[in-house]
Design a protein around this nucleic acid. Structure first.
Lengths: 271, 271
DNA sequence: TTGCTCCTCACGTCACGTGAGGTGGC
DNA sequence: TTGCTCCTCACGTCACGTGAGGTGGC
């Protein structure tokens, strides 16, 4: 390798040979520049005990050498690989890295990359203005196509927080299959003080479709479909959301439909 | 969509219907749980002005509704896409996102993913214990194979900080092509007080190889090969490194080689 | 009374960034 | 004398985490 040194010298035009042995060492900012980092970073490594303090000149200036540069480069590399400064400090200056730490790092890295890939897709959807950002990306597309009411959209947001991903998929299927058929203008426009008669008729008219949907997608009724928190809490949350989103007449209609479905249950698995 | 509501009710076993209109709203921790985040995060969004303060109960407890959940979900989504909370606050609650911000985000995201992919490769090298971590990954492999002296390795680290990536590539080529031929045991073991005669002979013997290398790799002599900072500084830094790494006798030998090369220059481009 | 939830400060974290205020060499 | 570099505190950043200390409903 010695020859390579000579080559390097020649290539770089010959090094400035020893100038009276005075300030042959590097200052903090020079070290930082060589390491491609900042003054503050080098000092931070001192503060954290990662980098040994070098000898000082009489005036207190620090004198760094090649060993310090190597150390800083290694810290930067390891830090870039995802290790925390605390971990790097723990490992000391050996080229031995705990297998387990590296494995964990690798797994974490793979997760991060996968997540960012997904984020990239989502961002593309948002940029094409097709995806409302309060719904998870898988739901967002279907919801946008279904042209939902504000209230219905809100309810959908709550629903995604209450049911499992599997049940969410089923919801997406329903939206895709039934499209805007699920919308009922009379329901959407129902005034809060609508009379008994109109509420009854509306419920009667809407029930068959609800029955169809339930029959076609039995996974919607899977008791495992509710997300953590328990069935009781989930039901209550849904009730609170309905109260927030629909007026009393609308809620009454929904209640009637539910009772009709309960009185004459849809058989399971007859898809 | 109203039908879907009924379906959801039935699926979830029927919601708990309005219990005397008392505490129909969500507490902070309930909102956090629904949003899949932490209590502190919700409060942080208040502090940052991202989330409107809800109405309070007489005892000071906060009462959140569906609109708050939607807002929190949107903040989480946008934050997950890489926007800072300050940026999200700036945009307000509209579904309109500044095109330019999204483009910048997308570019940044692509960069990050590319970088992490590289990091993943590097990590694999480190795990296979073939790569010293004070050298950039491209150099590391070649350096490990060449079985360098501590001093030579150190010098290599400094060199990588002084020359352009292109010149670094040339260095790797040299290491690969000449392998351990570049090592000279007599040079490595030269004592600091070696006499005139042995230094002269050593230089004489080493010069031809250095000349060969320079002839074969003219890009090493490209004046553009030095990294930012200027040729003067680069030369000086190299000199300081040599002083740190080699003893006076070794430096004298290197100096002699350099003078020999300068006296009888290698012609350019006669590869 | 006990246990659980809610509230508001307010300091801690991580890897530095950014002055503030002062000294030293040319 | 001026401009540049070096030094040591020490507070700021970002998105929260983590108690501290106190109140309220069952």
């Amino acid at each position: 390798m010695a020859c390579n040194v000579a080559v390097a010298e020649e290539a770089l035009g010959g090094f400035r040979s020893a100038r009276k042995g005075a300030d042959m060492a590097w200052s903090t900012s020079r070290l930082a520049a060589l390491a491609g980092t900042s003054l503050r970073t080098v000092r931070h490594y001192h503060e954290r005990g990662l980098l040994a303090e070098p000898v000082r000149q009489p005036n207190g200036y620090k004198n760094y050498g090649v060993a310090h540069l190597r150390r800083v480069m290694r810290i930067r590399r390891l830090s870039g690989l995802g290790l925390s400064l605390a971990q790097i400090a723990e490992m000391g200056d050996a080229e031995e890295y705990p297998e387990q730490v590296l494995r964990a790092l690798n797994a974490e890295l793979a997760d991060t990359i996968a997540r960012l890939d997904r984020v990239c897709m989502e961002l593309a959807l948002v940029m094409r203005k097709v995806a409302p950002t309060d719904l998870p990306p898988e739901m967002a597309l279907a919801a946008a196509d279904a042209d939902l009411t504000e209230a219905d959209h809100s309810l959908f947001v709550v629903l995604t927080r209450l049911i499992t991903p599997k049940a969410q998929k089923a919801c997406v299927e329903v939206l895709k299959a039934y499209g805007t058929d699920l919308r009922d203008k009379a329901f959407d426009d129902l005034s809060a003080d609508a009379g008994e008669q109109s509420r009854h008729e509306l419920a009667e008219r809407m029930t068959p479709l609800a029955r169809d949907v339930l029959a076609a997608y039995p996974e919607l009724r899977d008791p495992e479909a509710v997300a953590p928190g328990g069935v009781r809490k989930t039901e209550q949350t849904l009730g609170e959301a309905l109260e927030d989103l629909y007026n009393p007449a609308q809620r009454d209609v929904l209640s009637r439909i539910r009772r009709a479905l309960a009185a004459d249950p849809v058989a399971d698995g007859n898809r």
